[in-house]
Design a protein around this nucleic acid. Structure first.
Lengths: 70, 70
DNA sequence: ATCAAATGTAAAGCGTGCTATACTAAAAGT
DNA sequence: ACTTTTAGTATAGCACGCTTTACATTTGAT
């Protein structure tokens, strides 16, 4: 699914490294999330949502037909 | 983190198998989630929350000091 | 007590979230 | 132009979410 991490990070003028530190992950993880290489874990999604002061549902865009299920 | 899956599933009188089918996962996955053996993926968390008609934050209890980070 | 449905356990295997390291490229400051 | 910061790519490796299969236990109906 897509997410608004890069958008919100830039709006707050935070670097990838700073965000990574705040969420206790590596910069690679932030890059991969921003560039859609993989989905966050539930815990990381929660931390990121908290960092930006919004809910998980607001930070991640669930398309409702993810991954080919009914 | 903990979750309210078993509680809500029983309240709705749904079996593990029925919930598994609804979320397109195996019964083992439901059992493991209910018994706290591992955390759901973000996508599964979303599906489960939608199934119960609540948000991810309402379905999963984030303790705010998960996994020993600051 | 018996039988079926529902729940639980165990273990091997696969895909992927995340780390670590190293290197490249673009932006920004001076 | 030169240097520093920020962002991106690549790759190897580990941990864990989820599957699959098979078997055991509990619950409930009759």
């Amino acid at each position: 699914m897509k997410n608004r991490i890069q958008e919100l990070r830039k709006a707050r003028k935070v670097t990838q490294q700073e965000l990574a530190d705040a969420l206790c992950v590596t910069r690679q993880t932030i890059i991969s999330l921003e560039n859609g290489r993989y989905n966050a874990s539930l815990l990381l999604a929660h931390k990121a949502a908290q960092f930006f002061g919004i809910t998980i549902e607001e930070l991640f865009l669930f398309e409702d037909d993810e991954k080919g299920d009914a």
